[in-house]
Each structure stands twice: as structure tokens, then as C-alpha cells.
């Protein structure tokens, strides 16, 4: 009996100490995430007017949401553009960063130099820098978009196909610049793979090609998932993102105001979660199979 009580009190003590360590987080989460999130949701159901005395809320039910979805063509257009760009970018970022990580995992001369170059974007990718570079045309794949044959080819494409391809050509470098952290994640996964598996496979007569598909790729499946999720989130939070800029501008607009901007923020969040869900469905099954 006493030992049971002692065990309970020990567990309680452990739990209390644990809560002590995360107390700051609990306070921060409530103050800076939970309360503002609920508050924003409340705004989204109201017409918000900022007056000298404070904020006035007029309940409008879902009017802000229906306006964003059905009456405001700008919002939907930007969200669709964002979704397409994200869906196009994620595989490119993944494939690219995987290739670079595999390269950097090899042994060759001047590896340090190349490594330095490939991680450079992690350090310098910020909104204003990207904006200046894009404005100067420095982020397009050098020269490709100006080749007449390419322009002709683009004109032939149906509209739905044209915008992703155009995006690809004009923002190619930009997409690659978002791969820095992903390369790091792939690289650290690659280094966890036991070298002796490759040796065993080679002795059994597997070619490098087979080893890639049968050993390297499956061992990267968790990293794939982590990277895909990371990519979607960074692209969605990037300050040059057109949807975010539109929401930001609407916050100060006379016609829209805080209520409308809040409603759009939630719709945008929903679209982002759907995109994350798609990515997850695509890659999670694979990752799970590998772990079992």
C-alpha cells in the first residue's frame, strides 16, 4: 500500500517537474497562439471597424467567408495560383535536394566548396532580397524563357498547363533556392544508412543503379515526408507569397478590413492543410512501409 502511494507520488513529482520545464511554452502557447487564433476566428465572423475608442464588432455570420469564396475573384485566383505553384514546386525541390544531397554524400575533391555554395540560399533567402532579384530577372532560368522556340511552345499550351510551365521557367532558381534545409535533412538521413549494406549489395552483384532504387531511396522515405511538409510550409509562409500579400493589404482596406482579412486567413489555412494532406497521403504510406 505504501509503496503504491509512493510510486504515485513519485510519478506526480516527475510530472510536476516536467510541467515546470514546459511552463514557459504553455504560457506562450496560450498567449501568443491560442488566444489570438480564437480571436482571429471571432473577427472573421464579424464586420470589424477600428474606431478611436477601440474596435467595434458587428456580427455578420459567414458573410466574410462567402464574400471571399464567391464574390471576390482576386482571392480565389490567387489561392489557385498558390496551390498550383506549391504542387509544382514540391517535387522539384525534393528531387533537386535529393540529388544534391547524394552528390554531397560522395567523396570527391573540393567537396567543401560545393557544399558552401549549395547551402548559401539558406542564409540569404529573404523577402526583400528575393523581390529585388526577381524584379531584375535574376531568378529566371538564365535565358530559357527568352528563346523564341520556348515562347512559341508556351503559346501552344492550353491555359491550365501554361501557367505552371511559365512559373517553372521564370522562377526556376527561386524554387531551387528553397532547397537548402531540405538538402541538410536528406544529407543527415543518408549518413545514417549503414555503409555495409551497400557493400553487401555490391558483393551480391547489384549495380549502383539498383542500389539506389533498392537501398538509398527507401531509406530516404521519412526524410521525403519531412522535407515535403517543410517545403509546403515554407512556401506557404513566405512573405512574398501573393495570397499573404493580398490578405495583408486587405487588412488595411476600407472595404475589407480586419474581419474579411481574418476570414481569408482561415480559408488560406484550410487550403494549406489540404495541400499538406495531399503531400502526406502521397508520401506517408511509403514512409510507413519502410519503417515496419
Amino acid at each position: 500500500m505504501t509503496s503504491l502511494r509512493r510510486r504515485i507520488s513519485l510519478r506526480l513529482r516527475e510530472a510536476l517537474h516536467g510541467y515546470g520545464f514546459i511552463a514557459l511554452w504553455i504560457a506562450g502557447f496560450s498567449l501568443f497562439t491560442l488566444v489570438p487564433l480564437i480571436e482571429t476566428f471571432r473577427y472573421s465572423l464579424h464586420q470589424v471597424t477600428v474606431t478611436a475608442e477601440g474596435i467595434r464588432l458587428d456580427f455578420t455570420q459567414w458573410a466574410n467567408y462567402t464574400r471571399a469564396l464567391f464574390t471576390d475573384p482576386n482571392f480565389i485566383e490567387r489561392v489557385i495560383g498558390y496551390a498550383i505553384e506549391t504542387i509544382v514546386s514540391v517535387p522539384i525541390v525534393l528531387i533537386f535536394s535529393m540529388i544534391i544531397a547524394i552528390f554531397l554524400n560522395l567523396n570527391f575533391k573540393f567537396k567543401g566548396v560545393f557544399r558552401t555554395i549549395f547551402f548559401l540560399p539558406v542564409v540569404i533567402t529573404s523577402g526583400p532580397v528575393i523581390r529585388e532579384l526577381t524584379a531584375q530577372g535574376a531568378t529566371a532560368a538564365p535565358g530559357i524563357a527568352n528563346v523564341p522556340a520556348v515562347a512559341e511552345f508556351l503559346a501552344q499550351l492550353p491555359r491550365t498547363l501554361r501557367s505552371p510551365v511559365e512559373y517553372l521557367l521564370t522562377s526556376f532558381i527561386l524554387i531551387l533556392w528553397f532547397s537548402g534545409v531540405q538538402i541538410l535533412i536528406y544529407l543527415s538521413s543518408l549518413q545514417k544508412v549503414d555503409k555495409s549494406i551497400y557493400e553487401a549489395a555490391a558483393i551480391d552483384g547489384a549495380s549502383a543503379w539498383e542500389a539506389y532504387w533498392k537501398i538509398t531511396l527507401p531509406s530516404l522515405s521519412t526524410a521525403n515526408l519531412v522535407n515535403a511538409v517543410y517545403t509546403v510550409i515554407t512556401l506557404s509562409h513566405f512573405s512574398e507569397n501573393k495570397v499573404i500579400q493580398y490578405i495583408y493589404n486587405q487588412t488595411y482596406a476600407v472595404q475589407g478590413g480586419i474581419g474579411y482579412a481574418s476570414a481569408m486567413a482561415f480559408l488560406y489555412f484550410a487550403v494549406m492543410v489540404i495541400l499538406l494532406g495531399i503531400v502526406y497521403l502521397f508520401l506517408a504510406g511509403q514512409a510507413k512501409k519502410e519503417r515496419d
Binding site: Y19, L37, T40, A261, A265
Partner: peptide, 30 residues
Amino acid sequence: GLARYRFWGKNLVLLFILATFIIPPQNTLI
């Protein structure tokens, strides 16, 4: 705290930590 202690609601806390990464800043900004 999360790595070393056992306490009730730990998985919930981890889930919320992930959520704070996913929630776009404009949803809490105003």
C-alpha cells in the same frame, strides 16, 4: 522537459508544437 519527463498530455503538447509551426502567421497576427 518533453524528452526526459513523463506527464499527462505530452503527446498533445507535441501535437500543438507542430501546429504552431503550421499555422500561418496571419491567423494570429492581428
